[in-house]
Simulated assay, not measured.
Amino acid sequence: MVDDRDVAAVERQLGRAPRGLRAIAHRCPCGLPDVVETAPRLPDGSPFPTLFYLTCPKAASAIGRLEGSGAMRAMQARLAEDPELARAYQAAHDDYIARRDKAAAEEGMEPLPRGMQSTGGMPNRVKCLHALVGHELAVPGANPFGRETLDALGEWWADGPCCSEETSSTTTTEETM
């Protein structure tokens, strides 16, 4: 069960009510949720493959700047050239699918179909750093590109929380939760 204060904080971060919310998967050093775990299917039964959803607008904005700088193209090139990195990224994908299937079982729902994407382009593409960071924050050490992105971000939280009870923000760029 997610605490009502956390639900309210996530609503302020997203600018709307979250859907399929299962748990707080990670907290920002400021104390607010920054990654939530969602059910693999939304309440209407439609698939939602993003298990770990980054909600912090400050982190999302900083990641967006990295994406705009060409970081994903460089990561994609390295993925094609480095077999060890490719194995680690495949392992991240496998971890994500296993966790998503476990969440489906715990929710009493059908798992998502085999062959459906995991998140962020895994295992063959680098498509969304927001999703890869969400995975790495929720499961430290699981996602090599999520870790690399976090290392490049610095302390996005350092100037204070992303939202207060009086504010809301809507700067995430992931699939609509």
Rank of each mutant, 00 (worst) to 15 (best):
D4V: 13
D4K: 12
V7Y: 09
A8Y: 03
E11Y: 07
L14P: 03
G15A: 06
R16I: 03
L21M: 14
R22D: 10
C28H: 04
C30D: 14
L32T: 10
L32R: 11
L32I: 09
P33G: 09
P33A: 05
D34N: 14
T38L: 14
P40W: 11
R41Q: 12
L42N: 10
S46F: 10
F48T: 03
T50N: 01
T55E: 07
C56V: 01
A59E: 02
A62I: 02
I63W: 00
I63Y: 00
R65Q: 15
M72V: 03
A74Q: 15
A74G: 15
A77S: 15
R78G: 15
L79A: 08
E81L: 14
E84I: 11
L85C: 09
L85P: 07
A86R: 15
Y89V: 14
A92G: 09
I97R: 03
A98C: 02
R99I: 06
A103W: 01
E107H: 07
E110Q: 14
L112N: 02
R114P: 13
M116H: 06
M116C: 06
G121L: 13
N124S: 12
V126W: 00
K127A: 08
C128V: 05
C128E: 01
L129Y: 00
L129E: 00
L129K: 00
L132A: 06
V133P: 05
V133C: 10
V133I: 11
L137M: 06
P140I: 05
A142E: 00
P144L: 04
G146W: 01
R147P: 07
T149V: 01
A152T: 02
L153K: 03
L153W: 02
G154H: 05
E155N: 13
W157Y: 12
W157F: 12
D159C: 03
P161N: 02
S164L: 07
S164W: 04
E166G: 12
S169C: 12
T170H: 04
T171F: 08
T171L: 10
T172A: 05
T173N: 13
E174A: 07
E175V: 15
T176V: 13
T176N: 12
